[in-house]
Design a binder for these strands. Structure first.
Lengths: 354, 354
DNA sequence: GCCCTGCGGGAAAGGGCTTTCACTGCGGTA
DNA sequence: TACCGCAGTGAAAGCCCTTTCCCGCAGGGC
């Protein structure tokens, strides 16, 4: 690879001058020399060594982002928001997938710190795991102590800047909607119980039912991976245990899609026989059939806010922005099937109590 | 930020020794000193400066990837394959989204070259644009001249290693299927015509129709963005011009989903009134309703192959791996509606000829 | 005619790390 | 006993760039 001194030598100037020309420094350089340098750059196909540049400039510009999985639409949308702001400010984003592995998350914090990012954004649910949380906080604190900025999206752990979707209210809205539609047998297809997102959404749901004087027994909840297959599988388990369910709340849209698949496979019409309600309102939600009723989260906006927090002026007190959840009624929800309305063509004597 | 010399000083050793301990060098270090260094690292929360490391090591390890958009399931799947191999070999991936902007693509080649990546993978359609293609090839050649490895996925431009999905045969399979189902009025919802992927798939489709002595007139094709909204919009335009269509080929699954949305909005039942066939078989294809008939491409495998090519031994002659396309029959295709079968409740006198 | 100013350019000092090379003891061989 | 070799450590030379500092010089004001 050609280096800056190669360019300088070829142009017959000092490396300093070559550098100035290439970086458009404010120091003036005569057109004569400028031309020579530019010509040398073109001839040698010179590209500056990014690592040397970043080492030489003390300037830290890139921003590190840790998400569970960018190709998951939830994070894809958030990332879109992050990108938008970052691009506007000429920042490079380094995006890392933790695949919901806490250890990997810790590693990535180190990695990004090593890469001298100006700021760090962690998006995605936190974990109910004290040891991990403490470790993470230590690492983040160490990073902040050296001038790094940190913001989290949808996590409780961190004591600094945060953007929080209102998961609890979202769960509440879903629950209330189903109550109003007259559903009594409501099952929940939940993500891993170690995730705070799962428990937050569940808490809201419980609250809604609680207001009706009802509770949400554990036997009406199935925990699985937070994705399509997890949703399909959890729905199957739920229906096996309790065929009389008239509504299913999936704790994210991917799971809801899996739920729809299982219901279709079992020929249970949605919403006539079973209502389904998702969470997040990812783009595909409107394209499944029937279009999915879901709790909308302003995903792109969450990204925009988080990046703005982290690139904006530093404040003394940490800022927490709570973004509202909103129910989007589409076609997977309807009034509870009346017990008389032929609950299902399958055996119905068994399990009625469970 | 603590530096290596800070650690060394605190441990009472030289930076050389500290470095050896931290990197697990093969040079032996006494346990006594090792402990002291490790302790200092922990106390100072030391993380090596990645740029300094990469500058000091001549070793190039990261791999650069340029895709149109990772959050597009097509690329998400490919990326999954790339990741799998890269992770196995302990390589870091730097992924860049070009958003189908040729200039940005060129910029990213430079950027990644500047970041000293060991290899470069370009995934996604090429462009019918000679000037761009020449520029890109020059840049890639310059990069290869300095020892960089390059592989492309689904692009013709590059003369080196390549993984090519068989787009043409895929188009052919879609066309043949519809012919066999008796469809005569077939519309095509295509991506931008500047993309080679679009024209390749179209060429296969033409071939299939050609074998039946038929052709594919331009008025039966609508070009739009290669995404859901593009598909919805192109389908609308197609139907407006030619309400008698009995089948639609969408040149990727996202567009097919858009097509389904438009058809649903117009109350045209799929597949009874209009058949739809997609392309790529991205994961969501099985979850739309009805499940989408499509042409399957081994996306993950494409990623795996490309990464293997680029990390494997260098060969004299460039290797081109063509991966087969395969028709996946699901529920959006059926026999052509007979003209007598109530073609549509809307005006049918006009446009019958067009 | 002299000094000051300011422009254009180069020398050189980092930036933080790896790695070669040289050095010091020590155990072991002749 | 003299010497070789090697384990263990440190000094210092890069890696490639940016940026400060300084120098020479031309022009303008007195």
């Amino acid at each position: 690879m050609a280096t800056l001194s190669d360019v300088a030598r070829r142009a017959g100037v000092s490396p300093a001058t070559a550098s100035r020309v290439i970086n458009g420094s404010s120091k003036p350089v005569t057109d004569e020399l400028r031309e020579r340098v530019l010509a040398a750059v073109a001839e040698l196909q010179y590209v500056p060594n990014a690592h040397a540049q970043l080492l030489a400039r003390s300037h830290r510009s890139a921003v590190g982002v840790i998400v569970h999985d960018v190709s998951d639409p939830y994070f894809a949308e958030i990332t879109r928001g992050l990108q938008r702001v970052a691009t506007d400010q000429g920042r490079l984003l380094m995006i890392c997938n933790s695949y919901r592995d806490p250890d990997r998350e810790l590693e990535y914090v180190e990695l990004l710190r090593g890469h001298q990012v100006a700021a760090l954004i962690l998006a995605g649910s936190g974990y109910h795991d004290e040891a991990f949380t403490r470790q993470l906080n230590e690492k983040l604190a160490a990073y902040e102590a050296t001038g790094g900025r940190v913001a989290v999206i949808g996590r409780h752990e961190h004591s600094g800047d945060a953007v929080m979707p209102d998961n609890r209210t979202g769960g509440y809205l879903a629950g209330r909607e189903l109550c109003e539609l007259g559903h009594l047998a409501i099952g929940v297809v939940a993500g891993p119980r170690i995730l705070t997102t799962t428990t937050d959404r569940l808490a809201g749901l419980r609250q809604a039912l609680g207001e009706q004087g009802r509770d949400l027994p554990e036997r009406r909840i199935r925990y699985a991976e937070f994705d399509r297959d997890g949703g399909a599988e959890a729905t199957a388990r739920l229906l096996d245990a309790d065929p009389e369910l008239t509504a299913i709340v999936a704790l994210n849209d991917s799971m809801a899609i899996g739920a729809l698949a299982t219901l279709r496979a079992r020929s249970l019409p949605v919403p006539q026989r079973v209502s389904v309600i998702g969470f997040d309102d990812m783009p595909i939600a409107r394209d499944v059939t029937p279009p999915l009723t879901t709790v909308r989260l302003p995903l792109v906006d969450m990204g925009v806010r988080a990046m703005s927090l982290v690139l904006g002026a530093e404040t003394l007190s940490p800022r927490v922005e709570v973004l509202p959840a909103e129910l989007v009624r589409r076609d997977t929800t309807g009034p509870a099937a009346r017990p008389t309305s032929r609950p299902a063509p399958r055996a119905r004597r068994a399990d009625t109590a469970s």
